[in-house]
Design a protein around this nucleic acid. Sequence first.
DNA 1: AACGGCATGTAACCCGTTACATGATTAT
DNA 2: ATAATCATGTAACGGGTTACATGCCGTT
Lengths: 184, 184
Amino acid sequence: MLLANILLGFLSYGPMTGYDLKKTLDASTAFFWHAELAQIYPTLKRLVEAGLIQFEVEAQDSRPDKRIYSITTAGRAALREWLVEPLDSLPAKKDSVLLQLFFSGALDKATLLEQLRRQLAVHRVQLEQYQTETKDTVQDQVIQGGLEREGVMWELVREYGVGHERHYVQWLEHAIEVVEKRLK
Amino acid sequence: MLLANILLGFLSYGPMTGYDLKKTLDASTAFFWHAELAQIYPTLKRLVEAGLIQFEVEAQDSRPDKRIYSITTAGRAALREWLVEPLDSLPAKKDSVLLQLFFSGALDKATLLEQLRRQLAVHRVQLEQYQTETKDTVQDQVIQGGLEREGVMWELVREYGVGHERHYVQWLEHAIEVVEKRLK
DNA sequence: AACGGCATGTAACCCGTTACATGATTAT
DNA sequence: ATAATCATGTAACGGGTTACATGCCGTT
């Protein structure tokens, strides 16, 4: 399960609770991987059973005790095993929006244009976000943790995100133009 | 379920068997959606039960009888309902390769570069394929079926694929450069 | 008074993959 | 001989989402 590897990956940077892991995920890997707490908690349990992580309990009153997870030596080994798996195939893609547009030749021009414009709007917002908030988040992480080597990769992946959204925006603009000109 | 809509979408172009649907999927939507026969057959069954498609049996000897599915009026209505659903959120993305690279700051430089180069190789192949085979497939479909309106959208989506792979290739080239220069 | 954040979890369900099952025909 | 293509399906499993459950604290 990939989520297990993600959790190992984040815990390799330092100890955290399940709740923190969720927030970290949302703030960093959200655009190419996400997960709900309902999946994170059971996965942490399994990782503990497998001896790849361990936890300390921090008592709290008026809310559930915190479980602060940290990676074990076995966990680091498992993480490394995953990281060296050869990248010799394409990542499986699923894009429900492209899918819907693929079949949208059946729509009338006005409705189709509205669809494209709506989608363009959300991608513009997302592009902006990668260039501002996400950029700051990455930088903060690097400075705070002193993880320069890791920071290089985080920044590269963020740049991928920017490029991806830029491409999406350009494509949608192009699609709008084509539909306006070529469809009756 | 999205697969149901895909099947309706393809059947709206003309009658087909489950087996044909799988081949059509592989030849056209593969890069942003795929499905196995083990999922297609039960889904067709459900669509029949829901009255959105129907089938005629074509007897064959020495292999199972063909079930030739076609879309019903109710099916066309359901398809349209899906197509007009507003595209007001981002498609959920999962890219296991980006994920692995995100955590790959922990790897030594040589291993990391090998990972990036391997991945670059597969994307170059894919880019080439969208520009040749996939392009021909789209064109054939348009000519054969006389579906010009639909063809505009298919071609747009194919262009997205080309742009996407081009971006991926460029990013990997950039990443290799950065890793070579900035990582010890 | 209502909502969002903190902090943990369970249960039911749905989606999707892999493996299995059958069996003739055609290509390598 | 062996593998791929045609053509249908079922069964078991795993991954992931949604809904539910608890309950305090701080903000609006």
